[in-house]
């Protein structure tokens, strides 16, 4: 079952195209990571999904309903946390949380108080006195205290300390355990790696990569460190070998495209392997690889669509 389905979303602001045909699917019960640098179009896409702005073309559906037309109905089952939480300076955090929960339609006082305690928030303080992190806590408490089926979180942890980030991650995992779906946009790649079932990478308004982490790893290189009895001299000539570095005579570190892995292992084993260390690519490697490359993004889609 699909909770969020976007097809060919395009959004223009005058001449500038913030989104250029974004396809996105979040399935029931999964945590979908939405990553990309500032200005890539993450927040714009999320705002289209929330019906705050209207797509120039393309379809956006949540719970099978139109994100723009049925916004009010959809939002009854959805909770959103913006990355930059602006609150009313003369209301207290507690008042704002109550207001948000009421507007959402839910009323779960014990859950609210429990979360306030977990996030270590003082609800009696006026919002003007809150730091960025505390304002985010207000939005997070309101979101997780509501009984939503879908959580849309736009860089929700940018102001939280590591302890609070843990609490946040637990909240997300709890939501998942209850069968809820989450769209998490984030800069913190380790967080995405830990939480997300599937990931979409957006660049300049286009999804350039999407799929499970494993699928994505296939697209990338594995880091190898080998030590052999006899020196290998001809590695450079192999296809798919990058950043080759000879440490001492017999130790070589390099990266290898995943599809060439089989061939290279067969080759180096002839030289008498003494040591082999392999580390899987991190999401960061993946991310960096996409963004450091100039020119056209790679063709996307390998295993991404399910």
């Amino acid at each position: 079952m699909t909770v969020i389905r976007a097809r060919g979303l395009t959004k223009r602001f005058g001449k500038f195209a913030a989104l250029r045909g974004v396809d996105l699917e979040v399935k029931h019960g999964e945590i979908y990571g939405f990553i990309g640098p500032n200005g890539a179009g993450k927040s714009t896409a999320i705002r289209v999904l929330l019906g705050i702005i209207k797509a120039t073309s393309g379809e956006a559906e949540i719970f099978g309903r139109d994100a723009w037309k049925d916004a009010v109905e959809i939002h009854k089952r959805l909770a959103y946390v913006p990355g930059d939480v602006n609150l009313w300076p003369n209301l207290t955090g507690g008042e704002v949380i109550d207001l948000f929960m009421k507007l959402q339609g839910g009323k779960n006082k014990s859950r609210r108080d429990e979360l306030i305690q977990k996030f270590n928030l003082d609800p009696s303080k006026k919002c003007r006195t809150y730091s960025k992190g505390n304002r985010q806590k207000v939005a997070l408490v309101a979101a997780f205290a509501s009984d939503a089926d879908l959580y849309i979180l736009d860089e929700p942890t940018s102001g939280l300390d590591p302890l609070m980030e843990k609490v946040f991650q637990q909240c997300v995992l709890d939501a998942k355990a209850e069968g809820k779906s989450v769209l998490l946009s984030s800069h913190i790649l380790s967080e995405v790696e830990r939480l997300c079932d599937r990931v979409g990478i957006i660049r300049q308004g286009e999804i350039i990569e999407s799929g499970t982490l494993n699928e994505l790893r296939h697209l990338t290189r594995t880091h190898l460190l080998i030590e052999t009895k006899e020196p290998i001299t001809d590695l450079e000539s192999f296809k798919g070998v990058y950043e080759l570095e000879r440490k001492e005579d017999q130790t070589i570190s390099f990266q290898i495209d995943s599809e060439e892995l089989d061939g290279i292992i067969k080759h180096v084993s002839q030289y008498g392997l003494l040591k082999l260390e392999s580390s899987p690519p991190t999401l960061e490697d993946l991310f960096m690889r996409h963004y450091e490359e100039t020119g056209k993004p790679q063709a996307s889609g390998a295993g991404g669509e399910a």
Partner: peptide, 13 residues
């Protein structure tokens, strides 16, 4: 000041 989004992202028309 980005505060109307708190309404529009909830079930307020």
């Amino acid at each position: 000041k980005n505060r109307t989004e708190h309404f529009i992202s909830r079930s307020v028309s």
